[in-house]
């Protein structure tokens, strides 16, 4: 279990891009977390009075971001103190399927399993559900840890906090 304060302490993301509310289960190689979607999400601020159901669907790729942040919490836990000061990089993903739409009022439950770890790269799989129905399936996402420094304006790549040139195919 990780509370909201614990999520904030573990991830560098902040509003409007901190997309995990709470971790409900944390095992040796798996994690479950929730993200509640409301009509007050900042992405809906620019919608007019005649917004359609389609307009109010939660953005597909933010659903992926929320899932990968959940994976990031597990990756940090698995990596332990050895990666203190290093940055976590999402390198690649494949076979990510979208199913039914997520709408305001829905609580998304993410589940992530470690599929395998190779050197300093971890490969995760899993998916997300709303009321038990699949909304997202994730075949594979790779995460790597790299020695980090905060990038200045002219820091050459690879940059901390971002996806790297490693991992994936």
């Amino acid at each position: 279990m990780i509370t909201t304060e614990g999520v904030r302490a573990a991830l560098p993301h902040r509003y409007p891009m901190l997309l995990v509310d709470r971790v409900t289960e944390l095992g040796p190689d798996a994690i479950r977390a929730i993200k509640a979607v409301t009509v007050n999400e900042p992405w809906y601020a620019r919608l007019g009075p005649r917004a359609t159901r389609e307009d109010l669907a939660y953005p597909d790729f933010l659903l992926i971001e929320s899932w990968t942040q959940t994976a990031g919490l597990l990756a940090k836990r698995l990596a332990g103190d050895g990666v203190e000061g290093q940055v976590m990089l999402f390198g690649s993903m494949s076979d990510v399927g979208f199913h039914r739409r997520v709408l305001p009022g829905d609580t998304v439950e993410h589940h992530v399993r470690l599929e395998r770890a190779v050197n300093d790269t971890m490969i995760f799989e899993g998916g997300s559900r709303v009321d038990g129905e699949p909304v997202l399936t994730v075949g594979r996402v790779t995460v790597a840890f790299r020695p980090g420094e905060r990038p200045g304006a002219d820091t050459p790549d690879p940059h901390p906090g971002v996806v790297s040139r490693t991992g994936g195919r």
């Binding site: 902040r14 409007p16 790729f61 971001e65 905060r150 990038p151 906090g161």
Partner: peptide, 24 residues
């Protein structure tokens, strides 16, 4: 871009999922 406020507060990086969004 509003995402930069929180990704990340001291070092703005355009999120990978937002690159995907531009492609979409």
């Amino acid at each position: 871009e509003p995402v930069f406020a929180g990704h990340y507060p001291d070092f703005p990086i355009f999120p990978g999922v937002c690159v995907m969004e531009c492609v979409r």
